[in-house]
């Protein structure tokens, strides 16, 4: 039976190497543009609010995911909150050990629904706990690019 045909010698098995030479270019979008501009220019967070559903979207959305209406109510929200969950990262994307483990956390913000995934610093991994109060540390104004990296990390309050 030919479906049982075997490759007799390993050298007979060939493979072809290749890639998918793409680069993604992602615009911040309509809501994202305003959110990241505010971080860049003022070092603070904005959220959008759906008054009908009583949801304060963080990061802000252009529309309410619940009732699907357009959101144009923008509010400032404080850059502090608490650790909803966290992990300690020991390896990089290529599975190489990091020189220092890094703490990655999902931080929910006090004044909003939702929050941000970001690094924690100024604390040792063994001292982090769920519910810990933290605040965002922004980079200096002249270093900010309008990106999530404008937040250097979150740190304990």
């Amino acid at each position: 039976m030919s479906l049982l045909h075997r490759i007799e010698h390993p050298d007979d098995a060939l493979n072809w190497h290749g890639d998918m030479p793409t680069e993604g270019r992602y615009t911040a979008g309509i809501a994202g543009e305003r959110f990241f501009r505010e971080i860049k220019e003022k070092g603070q967070f904005l959220a959008t609010v759906c008054l009908d559903c009583d949801i304060t979207y963080m990061p802000p959305r252009l529309y309410c995911e619940e009732c699907f209406s357009h959101l144009d109510e923008w509010v400032e929200v404080g850059s502090w909150g608490h650790v909803h969950t966290f992990t300690v990262v020991h390896r990089d994307l290529d599975n190489e050990p990091l020189s220092e483990p890094r703490i990655l956390a999902f931080v929910t913000l006090d004044d909003a629904d939702g929050g941000l995934v970001h690094y924690l610093d100024e604390i040792e991994p063994e001292d982090v706990y769920l519910g810990m109060r933290v605040e965002a540390v922004f980079r200096a104004e002249d270093e900010r690019q309008g990106s999530i990296s404008d937040i250097e990390y979150f740190r304990p309050v």
Binding site: Y26, T27, A28, G29, I30, A31, G32, E33, L62, Y63, C67, F68, S69, H70
Partner: peptide, 27 residues
Amino acid sequence: RRAQETPKELAWEAAHLALRSCEMTID
């Protein structure tokens, strides 16, 4: 050729107008 919207914002723009065109809501 190039939209500023994120893909999900584009999707919402079309989807909420389709609902509006027949006076329906997402519910």
